[in-house]
Design a binder for these strands. Structure first.
Lengths: 220, 220, 220, 220
DNA sequence: GATGAATGAGAGTTCATTCAT
DNA sequence: CATGAATGAACTCTCATTCAT
């Protein structure tokens, strides 16, 4: 926002403080509506419905986002950004770093990060610079959480950031048609079970099953 | 009984005069194609494409399955049934019951049970008797696996069958647009992490974090 | 039927009495089913449904009638023929010739002659020789009824055979979707009202309204 | 009042901001096209064709009328309404009340009221309040015409409004595939014959045939 | 700048007709 | 010969996107 403001000032545009007031509001409402409806109905929800929920005409939506990809981009960006915020908040926790990591994971679930999964399939530019940057920020933040937990001997040493994010996303993916903006108890329970699997045992807990794990990999 | 049967057939069995070898083959191919494409492209894949992949005309598909719901029903039934078979196979394992359970979970992933998730959202009768029966069979089989592992002290005692099946399904849900009939290494890894969380510790491992868990529940 | 038998004998075909037994029966059942369903559901009824009602496979229907036009042709022929039979029966009445004509008109309604109307629109050859001949026979029979009634001074002298047949057909046209093989009381009442309009008055009844009739023609 | 209206518009009339001149025009054109094509091709005419005739895209038709039933509803309403107008015009006639009734019947034929018959079979809500109201209006108007003609001794006393409307509708039902928006002479002739049957004789004309009528009812 | 309306391309489903058993 | 199955063309309806007000 700083950047935008400075640029505007630099080009010596007239203030134009007014015309943006409701326009920005509209844009905001569209993104919010889109996020909710992507969660509720999946990524194929009719855009006219999104516009209706946002309380604007469909053409207004298209003025702000030329096509579905643009809107998806914005929603993914917004969710990623909010999730990153949660990661950074958790990073400020003073206590047990594994608890901090856990807190982040549950908070990310509440941001409905899982709803992004189906959008990663296509129809929009996954590698858009803006998105890459935001994802990098998220990964760095989580990297911090993971690193600290690992250093403290509270997290298994074979866990990567990707493990956490992907599994978290999958576990919180909504079922289309189920109207539910809030992750339910049941899902938080599964997240916790997963987290339990990440926790480092007092001693080397895995050694016992290591052989059989290899065996499992050779299934079928 | 053979004699009786042959006699009946020879005398007067006016209905179902022939099993129509090719028709059955077609039906089979349609279900197979549908399963693959549901995995690959999600539950909204155009049925014409399914027919094309099956190598039949679209009307042939509609003759066998009057609408999408009917086809979905059949696919769900087939996957459930195959998954149950895996559960029963695993139940025959002689060794460590937790390993048996784990083996089943990985095998179920390979059956792409996760692909069923989006279909559960609607568009077909989830409570069809045929489906209920099959689901019951699956649950019973898994119940056996879970019970034995628990009795052996190898599984946490706060785990229910539903936990296993739902988390398993979510973790293996395919990303539409990613052509992949085989669950990849990465996914098996996440499944294993989740299983690790289910394993009972030598001592009561959870006591240490119990208080903080409560704390986590109070997130938001 | 006489004609057919004589032809067969004249060409000295081998008897071939057997193979036709059930084939003819099938053909008959198809025509009957078609007549009923044309009456009930209109001329666009799916031919597969006709075959089902006839209790034969659809291909059997197509073997007997290469396309819808052929089947329609046969049904129109059959109804026309039966209607002609009614006309000839009525011609044998000894009593009042207007009553005889009326009796025919009501009987023709019961044959569902009105069901033929929508078939005259297209999709089959209205001027097929076989049909022309049958129609000629019908017209001649009705001509006889009309002529006698007129000669007896019981029928208005400005009525033509076409007036009777067309109006009769229109008044008895079934409403698709209304399952009713028997013309109802209400329809017979309308037919009777129409017949009342055809009856010659004791004196020249029309003279009074002749002027105003001309006036009516100048409506709007 | 002009002032008031303008003020209201100027101040705050947030809903229905404009009558959208062209949209109304489109809707009108669709209904007109539909009426014509229902008459010409029957109630199953492809809606895409209707849209083409109306000069709009098919989706525009579907925007205005969500499904065929909605369009049928509108057409039935329009024809009923116009027919009622004709009835009320005829009711203003000063002369012979039977002539007035006759004038209405011929005028209703020109409105193609008969084209509605096949639509009454199903596919739309026959008992929609809007339609019931309009039909009631029509029946009342015709009731007036019939009542006056009867009081004047010009109409048979055993005639009901339903007789007139149903017979009229049947007699003017178009033959699908015959492009003809104007009822032809021939049809008007049949209507007139029917009307002749409704006219009260100078003396009690029916007594002579009463017995035989009973006889006719015993046909079959 | 915002809106409602318009559009064409596409998906699901049905049906007349043909084919293989 | 009779049958069930297969097929492609046609029709209804939806939706992303563009246009006129």
């Amino acid at each position: 926002m700083d950047t935008v403001a400075r640029t505007a000032a630099g080009t010596a545009q007239p203030r134009t403080p007014r015309p943006r007031a409701d326009a920005l509001r509209n844009r905001e409402r569209i993104v919010t509506a889109a996020r909710e409806m992507f969660v509720e109905f999946g990524p194929d929800v009719p855009l006219d419905e999104v516009a209706r929920r946002a309380g604007v005409g469909n053409a207004t939506l298209y003025r702000n986002f030329p096509d579905r990809a643009a809107l998806t981009h914005e929603v993914v960006l917004a969710v990623t950004s909010r999730t990153t915020d949660r990661a950074e908040e958790a990073a400020n926790d003073e206590g047990d770093p594994f608890i901090a990591l856990s807190r982040f994971v549950h908070a990310a679930a509440d941001e409905r990060i899982g709803a992004l999964c189906p959008m990663l399939s296509g129809g929009f530019d996954k590698d858009h610079p803006e998105l890459l940057a935001e994802r990098r920020r998220l990964e760095e933040a989580v990297e911090g959480l993971v690193g600290r937990a690992m250093s403290a001997g509270r997290l298994r040493t074979d866990i990567a950031v990707g493990d956490v994010l992907v599994a978290l996303s999958q576990l919180t993916r909504p079922l289309p048609g189920i109207a539910c903006m809030n992750i339910d108890r049941f899902t938080h329970r599964h997240i916790q079970l997963f987290l339990d699997g990440l926790e480092a045992p007092a001693r080397s807990r895995l050694t016992g099953t290591a052989a059989t794990l290899e065996d499992l990999r050779r299934r079928t």
